[in-house]
Simulated scan of single mutants.
Amino acid sequence: MHPFSILMLAVAMSTDAFAAAVGKGAAMRTPRFRDALRAGLIFGTIEAVTPIIGWALGLAAAAYVTAWDHWIAFTLLVLLGLRMIWAGVRPDGDPVAAEDAPLRHGFWVLAATGFATSIDAMAVGVGLAFLDVNILAVAATIGLTTLVMVTAGIMLGRVLGAMAGKRAEIGGGLLLIAIGAFILYEHLSGAA
């Protein structure tokens, strides 16, 4: 997998975490950098581990589906991209009142949110098992990108609000679909 594709995949995988972080930052009274970095570390760690788990699961099945691997990767990325686009256009509930806004989010709330936003990274890991990739490099890139994007998302949450997070999720979904199409093109044209 080309390094640029890995970076774009990491950005795409991080956009839903960024959207969640913007929402969490918007819901906090005054986000502090220390709290934003803590959230970034939690999300980034989870986001780095889940593609490795998915990759291991996909590797176990790789021998059975080698002829269809590029179609599987393409299908997973397109479906995940469409899910992210749907999440980006779906309307949300009422915003949190300022007096009810927390000063800081608890570890388990952040971990649960981080895991929820990393399910797509696990599915991408399954798809990557069918390709010739260094999963540790991909996972580290996803984790570091998520750390940066979540930290920035928490800090920008008050300023940007939930709408920017929705747009980021739509953009991430479109990026996943484009990566899936590129993988399919590489394999069908013999460029891989």
Rank of each mutant, 00 (worst) to 15 (best):
H187L: 07
M149N: 09
E99F: 15
Y185I: 09
K166T: 04
A63D: 15
G106E: 13
I179Q: 08
L175M: 15
F4P: 08
L110F: 06
H2L: 10
D120P: 01
A101Q: 13
R29L: 12
A63E: 15
T75H: 05
G171K: 01
R29P: 00
T113P: 09
T145C: 12
A178Y: 07
F115H: 05
T141R: 06
T75K: 02
V133H: 11
Y64L: 13
M13I: 09
A56L: 14
A192W: 05
L128A: 15
F43D: 01
A112S: 14
L37P: 00
R83G: 13
N134C: 09
L82R: 07
S118T: 03
A140P: 04
L103K: 15
L57T: 01
L37D: 02
F107R: 12
A152W: 07
I170T: 08
A140E: 05
A19W: 01
M84I: 11
A87D: 09
R104Y: 00
L59E: 00
G23E: 03
L7M: 14
T113K: 07
M155G: 06
A26M: 08
G153M: 04
V49Q: 08
L156V: 12
G114N: 04
R158E: 05
M84L: 12
G125S: 05
L59F: 06
A20M: 15
G114H: 04
V11E: 01
L79V: 15
A101T: 06
R29D: 00
G23N: 11
W55H: 10
L156C: 12
G88C: 09
P91M: 05
T15N: 13
M28G: 02
A111V: 14
A137Q: 04
I179P: 13
S14G: 15
T30L: 14
A129F: 03
V150Y: 04
L110I: 12
A164L: 12
K166I: 03
V148G: 07
D94G: 07
I170C: 04
M149W: 11
G161M: 10
V22W: 03
L184W: 03
G172C: 12
I85R: 03
V89D: 00
V22D: 00
I119F: 02
I52V: 08
L184Q: 01
F115P: 02
A10C: 13
G153T: 06
F107P: 07
K24P: 00
T66V: 09
G171R: 01
A39C: 11
L110H: 06
L136P: 07
G40Q: 05
A56D: 06
H2S: 15
H70C: 02
L37T: 00
P102L: 09
